[in-house]
Design a binder for these strands. Sequence first.
DNA 1: CCACAAATTGCACGCTGTGCAAGTTTTGAA
DNA 2: TTCAAAACTTGCACAGCGTGCAATTTGTGG
Lengths: 206, 206
Amino acid sequence: MAETTEPPGRRAQNKIDTRRAIADAAFALARREGPGSFTVDQIAASAGVSRRTFFNYFHSAEEALNVRMESFLELAIGIFAEQPAGLPLLDTMIAAFGATTQVQHLGTHGELFRMAADNPELLRAQLHSWERAETRIVQAVEERLGPGVSHLYVTALVGSVLSCTKAAMQDWAGESPEPDDASGADLEARIVRALSMLRDGFAHPA
Amino acid sequence: MAETTEPPGRRAQNKIDTRRAIADAAFALARREGPGSFTVDQIAASAGVSRRTFFNYFHSAEEALNVRMESFLELAIGIFAEQPAGLPLLDTMIAAFGATTQVQHLGTHGELFRMAADNPELLRAQLHSWERAETRIVQAVEERLGPGVSHLYVTALVGSVLSCTKAAMQDWAGESPEPDDASGADLEARIVRALSMLRDGFAHPA
DNA sequence: CCACAAATTGCACGCTGTGCAAGTTTTGAA
DNA sequence: TTCAAAACTTGCACAGCGTGCAATTTGTGG
């Protein structure tokens, strides 16, 4: 009985490990070789896996590279979902997205943002990630508010919130090329600031 | 003197024609064969051009498909640029983006939106188009407002405006599968509505 | 008419993404 | 323990993509 807390068993763990290995290899390679100059074969070899297996886990090199961004958005969705209902929607979102900055290894997320500047394909992958997150949040909001609410209202609202969050992260990633461990508070401040502007209808240009 | 208004001459016209021919062929093919199932060779052949020439004009099949969206955003940027300065920024943008609905062949734009639902690569290309438009508009706004304004303010604002416009277009494209010629007013109403919500800080869920 | 510039084309090459059919590993039950 | 089924990995083949290069065709200007 070596197993402690594994209902799924060892197979599932292997998949998780492989997935992590591939993603880490991709990130390390992107750091070393530069954003756009590395092949799937290199990633696979570096992760100790065949080329074919790589494609069993990801559709492209950029998708593997983008795992961190994806997990960040996953976290944001999760935090929002467990937020208490009834409060004003925008305040709920400010709280939720502000709290996402406590994610592990925040510095690498900023790094990923900066990589996208030199790699169009990676940029597209990231935009796609935000887009999918948007539709999921829209769904969650509509379930929360009930059927009486305008669909346009919800999509416009959620889109704007994510745009502001994205703007805050880009601003933060651009300013802090060296990631202090305490820069989480910095990012959170920017997110809250941008979303507060949104709540005020962008009335104050300062 | 057969030339009337052609300083560049015939060569330039040929390029324009070829570009149009390729884009039209791509769009026609996407309509007929479905969003994701057509090759560059098909497009090139259908446009009466070699495969290699296709890649002299576009980087991918999706980019060729996306020409209409690109021109729409180009128009939006142009209209915004010639808007008088001094008025409240958001009202200026409401006017500018509302006016874009007078573009030619509006129905095909909606069609393009709908195609993106079944073609991830096309969706990414479209998101990328919006992203580039965003940076250009941010630049224009910062020139207009002068150096004293917060960069985060501008990026968050422009991002939100474009998100609302996008939401309005998606809403419109989803509702009107058959494009009446008078649906421009319909789209304009939605855009104005979404941007007004933004100006109100999304205070009224109705 | 002709030389020059610009655009088109074919060719070659490496890389991508996927279906398929073999291997290999894990699982759960006998 | 043993073993068969299920899940995962791998190699192979193949169509398609994107690009550099050199040859060719086409428009431009003297």
